[in-house]
Design a protein around this nucleic acid. Sequence first.
DNA 1: AACATCAACTTAAACGTTTAACCCAACCAA
DNA 2: TTGGTTGGGTTAAACGTTTAAGTTGATGTT
Lengths: 343, 343
Amino acid sequence: MKKTKLTLKDVAQQLGVSTATISNAFNRPDQLSKGKREEILAQCERIGYSGPNKAAQILRKGTSNIVALVLADSIAYMVSDPVASTFIKGVSTTLQQQGKHLLLYAGDSNSILDVVDFVDGFICYGAPRNYKLAQEIAAQSKPAITVDFDIDDVPSINIDNENAAYEVAKAAIDENDIVAILGLRLIDSPTTCRIYDSPLIDVNSSISHRRLDGYVRAAKEQGIEINNEWIWHLPESDRSYARQAAKEVLMSSPRPNTVLCMSDIIALELLHSALAMGIDVPNELKITGFDGIEEADRARPHLTTVCQSSVAKGEAAAKALLAGEVRKQILPFDLRLGETIRH
Amino acid sequence: MKKTKLTLKDVAQQLGVSTATISNAFNRPDQLSKGKREEILAQCERIGYSGPNKAAQILRKGTSNIVALVLADSIAYMVSDPVASTFIKGVSTTLQQQGKHLLLYAGDSNSILDVVDFVDGFICYGAPRNYKLAQEIAAQSKPAITVDFDIDDVPSINIDNENAAYEVAKAAIDENDIVAILGLRLIDSPTTCRIYDSPLIDVNSSISHRRLDGYVRAAKEQGIEINNEWIWHLPESDRSYARQAAKEVLMSSPRPNTVLCMSDIIALELLHSALAMGIDVPNELKITGFDGIEEADRARPHLTTVCQSSVAKGEAAAKALLAGEVRKQILPFDLRLGETIRH
DNA sequence: AACATCAACTTAAACGTTTAACCCAACCAA
DNA sequence: TTGGTTGGGTTAAACGTTTAAGTTGATGTT
């Protein structure tokens, strides 16, 4: 019966060699004769030593092969959101190829301090709600990369949200339309509501505000001003918030005939609500989404939306982090024209 | 400019006390006068020491607050599958409440050895494809719990799959029905196919085989034998596999009028295919699912299925692990009767 | 006054590795 | 023969903590 786990020291003693030699057998084959190495490995196998203790390695080497994925929201929300989970997919695939492990870190936690010492780097997905966290990320000295938001001097992955929003809006909006926007995280409210003149949050670093700018520019080109009363705020891209916003927008009068949604989930919920009410899409109501999730493709009519590859983002983020990339990258997007607008 | 990160030793020196005192200030308030402690903490804040290095703590204390979630499949698949991602949700919520971190571990990796030394425990979700992994889990000495499968002497969380399958099948099957089954991971094949007489894999520990037993028992009670040629194998609960299986089953002749599906994803895909072909559900075709995912509820007609709470499973698993529970738990399930069968 | 108790610290030995620096025999060149 | 390399090792000092055990001076008890 094994009393306690074998250590490298025990093994060295048993085999009559130094600890360095055992260590080298596992980590630096070139420091040993081939014969000795194989013998040592075989003996280790035999006596049940499965290799150097990783905790000790982390301390000594200062590297753990663990990458922390810092999510803007709770893990719970992130794994169920199609966009975020697809991103995670990209990240995890790439990390795994490189033999790295993935630590999921909820952005609604207070501090990254309790992992910063042992992870090899950070991938930060979406602007943390909690500003302190963003500061900590900027301040700590491990490699980090942000996705879908920016921090000075930290490399990042983004798409050109302003132009993407502009293009999808431009495709949708006709002269004399009444345009509404179902936005995401525009103001500091935990509920769905029109923004009126609530102060916008996070205006500079927020992708939502870039998208807003794009929408507004496209509208302006058609001579349309979008009043804040036609702009909704949703705290999350969640079906139930979306449902409520959809209801409000469809009930309002005059009813908008073009609704620009900042996520496909929102757009799809609006689409379903509208169809259920017998509204003709796109003739009475045009809808655009954002993201290009699978479900948008399965919907009838097909959703007009901006496709961005979350998998590509995840892969790019992981690769850039591991490669020590320091530049900020802008990834491409794709306009997908469906039948929720008129062409 | 900071040259290198401060260590506890540095701080001790600067403040003119022993390292033990600094350590105690952070970890064991009772070992210090309140005054001294506050002074130390304040000084640490001032000189930029953010607390003991976690890597060193892990080594010294032998605990990291990291729990590994070992997934049966790739992380990529797991985060997109509604059932698995909901499970992760339950796990992560509970872990976070207890200040634990979540390391996602892909079961298609070879070995848990590279994390076993520093994680505090394992939650294993679904039987790993790779038998070696299961053995390692059983062999290592850290706390572990399995979900949706079993290993001798390891605590686990399961539902009574046999009875769940029996009940949903019983509700669906009428006399003289032609019954088909769309199963999951029944044989060792990477493609969708009928099982005919391929050898079943993993018969004892597999929940799929428990479900199969339940289906067969219910059928038998109506005097129906389900021949292996009416049983399909899908390698994953994935839409594209499901689509193909749906096509095959709907094209086969005679066409079954009752199809028991081992997941809702499969059932929904079958439902869509059937409706698209103009088949009357449930009069020409009865369908049952398994899991009770949200989407099943949004479908029309509503899917008849077995609801099991993946969130509850996740929570139960995390709680049991953290509490050092050693027993195997059987969680309840719920029959949900929708309009995809006749009542 | 002698002794026990206690709070508040300090000392120093772990925790299990990695790795720079050193050592030595064997081989080789001149 | 001498001296320089080199392959194959060993030694011992880190890595940054925690914590059992020990020290001290102050307080309390008899």
